[in-house]
């Protein structure tokens, strides 16, 4: 399945929080082929072949308020 890039809002407030999200996505390297964390903008872009919901669940585990914004028009 072609991989898509999804955009999420994640309430990250500091380096530690973005570090936690970074580790979560790194551990899911089998599902997440690439990702980008914009701490100031509180945005996370995830390139994946799995559904946006599955990635949403992963991000929610960080304990941060997470919202799915949409698919990034690549």
């Amino acid at each position: 399945m072609a991989s898509k890039t999804y955009e999420y809002n994640v309430e990250m407030t500091c380096e530690g929080c973005s570090g936690a999200v970074d580790r979560i996505l790194k551990r899911a390297s089998d599902k997440v082929s690439d990702f980008e964390i914009d701490l100031p903008g509180k945005k996370v872009f995830v390139t994946t072949t799995v559904s946006s919901d599955e990635v949403l669940e992963m991000l929610k585990k960080s304990g941060k308020a997470t919202k799915f914004v949409g698919e990034k028009s690549s």
Partner: peptide, 15 residues
């Protein structure tokens, strides 16, 4: 490991 500020502490404690 991996905590850098109090918001991480609060997140862990709350969750």
């Amino acid at each position: 490991d991996g905590m850098t500020c109090n918001s991480c502490v609060r997140t862990i404690e709350e969750n």
